[in-house]
């Protein structure tokens, strides 16, 4: 059995306590994601000297600074590109990318697409709070229709970006989305995503009471956290209702966000295929040399 720990022991192991407490606002969901990652890492028992974190710009990208391991705080949207570089330099490193919705889906969308397409062995933890929180509440590409932001004062008319569907279509090995308001499913999901060889995406729906909740009249912290319970539905339930449900039931769940594990497959990753290619070329090269002799 794994040795059991309390949060305090966990903090001593993983947290850079000099950086604590966080800069996050009261009621923010980012700290919770950090804690879930700690519990998942604790269960896996990974060597933190062989684990690297990368992040871009934004609230979520401050997370590697709080972890007592090596990390890269890179340019806006380029976290996944830098993470690919780490993996290419030394494939023994476990690479975890913390990124936000503006960082991953907005400015770094193309890096994300191509990392998922190449199936590079990394875990991307995308924290989606529907807004650019750090820079003052500009509209993010994942914001639902009709939401208010400083750059959309009369309501958003752009259709939101479903990053999980995109990753699924690109054939990422592990795709899951969870709200931060329930602990057990996300911890299990992070663990599975970290263990998975190949690209895994974990999207977290995190509350942002300061920039998003306040403008969209979602109420205080308690109501804002409850909003995520009321407006999400498990993918299995959603599929069943869409198949067998009545018209009224379908109408009720139509606009809710689907959560759960969307994809869990095992495709060969980029570096596995690269190693195979090198072996094949070496064999061919040796054959040629023998022929010349």
């Amino acid at each position: 059995m794994v040795e059991v720990k309390t949060a305090e022991e966990l903090n001593k192991k993983f947290l850079r306590e000099g950086m604590w407490p966080t800069i996050f606002c009261n009621g923010c969901g980012h700290g919770v994601v950090l804690e879930y990652t700690f519990w998942a890492l604790e269960e896996l028992g990974w060597d933190m000297d062989k684990t690297m974190f990368a992040s871009g710009i934004g609230c979520s990208s401050r997370l590697p600074g709080y972890i007592n391991a090596d990390g890269l705080h890179t340019t806006h949207g380029r976290a996944i590109a830098f993470a690919t570089g780490i993996k290419a330099a030394d494939p023994d490193f476990n690479v975890i990318v913390f990124t936000g919705d503006g960082d991953c889906a907005g400015i770094g969308g193309n890096h994300f697409i191509h990392a998922a397409r190449r199936n590079i062995d990394m875990t991307v933890i995308m924290i989606n709070n529907f807004i650019y929180g750090m820079t003052g509440g500009q509209l993010a590409p994942t914001a639902p229709l009709g939401s208010i932001a400083t750059t959309a004062p009369y309501g958003n008319i752009e259709h939101p970006f479903d990053i999980c569907e995109l990753a699924k279509a690109l054939g990422a090995n592990y795709v899951a989305r969870w709200p931060v308001s329930h602990p057990y499913q996300p911890i299990k999901s992070i663990k599975e995503g970290l263990q998975k060889k190949g690209f895994s995406l974990l999207e977290f729906l995190a509350p942002c009471p300061t920039a998003y909740g306040r403008r969209n009249k979602l109420g205080d912290i308690k109501k804002h956290w409850a909003w995520y319970d009321d407006n999400t539905i498990l993918i299995e339930d959603y599929d069943k209702i869409m198949k067998y449900g009545s018209v009224k039931e379908k109408e009720e769940v139509k606009d809710k966000m689907q959560i759960g594990v969307f994809q869990d497959i095992q495709k060969p990753g980029f570096f596995e295929l690269y190693d195979q290619l090198m072996e094949r070329l070496k064999v061919e090269e040796n054959k040629k040399r023998e022929g010349k002799k």
């Binding site: 949060a7 700290g31 911890i187």
Partner: peptide, 15 residues
């Protein structure tokens, strides 16, 4: 240990 897991500032330990 629900409070320990959900605390965004990692301030709670349950013993």
């Amino acid at each position: 240990r629900y409070c320990e897991l959900i605390c965004p500032d990692l301030a709670i330990s349950v013993i």
